[in-house]
Nucleic acid binder design. Structure first.
Lengths: 115, 115
DNA sequence: ATCCGCTGCTACAATAATGGTAGCATTCGA
DNA sequence: TCGAATGCTACCATTATTGTAGCAGCGGAT
């Protein structure tokens, strides 16, 4: 309803106070990690190009996620479009190992029954 | 409506085919990373204890997430309760650096305005 | 000045996901 | 047989996400 809260803190969980849970709350939202990933991996781009890169993301959610990521200090919006800030790149670097791990994991649950 | 899909693939995104996006789709859900985190960090536990550890998670969602994590081969449900499987611990190990990073990050966006 | 295309972004309504409470069926020990 | 604990489901209210359409601003070409 056009509200787009983000008053300063996420509406959802993360009440435990632990920073890791606050981070999980930020990243544990639709497209959040994917946006950061493509922004770092494929470089800065415009709002609409980011839409295309992510596939089926709607502008409503993309705008919401970008606001959250900007507020988290991970992404910024300079004239040329959106780009990851140093802190966002740091986080991306930590996520990179997941890329390699996910390939093994995909082979594991792909062919195998998954029991 | 008692549906609890999980027919074999998540209903949400991850259509890009890239394993990392499939992983982001799995982990980018409410409580998913938190459940794996507490299960690895604080050890195996029962369904209800997991509820308490996670705070305000509802049994409906916890059950859904556990099904997804089990199907992903990251978690199993032995007689004594729930525990992380080797592959889940692997993933947890990759997330551990996020714990340290999140502490710096929390200090950064906490006191500071966050511009 | 006018039109065009691009930018980021919002309105609106429909659908899906999540939260919260109550409660079931089962097991185990007393 | 009774109570307590187990994993889990029904139900409904609330929130999040989707999908489509479109706005206002800007710069360049005409």
């Amino acid at each position: 309803m056009t509200k787009l809260p983000i008053p300063g803190k996420p509406v959802r969980g993360s009440q435990s106070g632990a920073p890791i849970m606050a981070l999980f709350d930020l990243l544990g939202r639709r497209w959040a990690m994917g946006i950061l990933w493509t922004l770092c991996k494929d470089g800065p781009c415009t709002f609409r190009e980011l839409q295309e890169r992510c596939g089926s993301i709607s502008p409503t959610v993309l705008n919401t996620r970008l606001k959250e990521l900007r507020q988290a200090g991970l992404v910024e919006h300079s004239g040329e479009g959106y780009r990851a800030k140093p802190k966002g790149i740091e986080l991306y670097e930590l996520l990179v190992p997941l890329g390699a791990w996910s390939k093994e994991w995909a082979r594991m649950i792909g062919p195998e029954p998954n029991v």
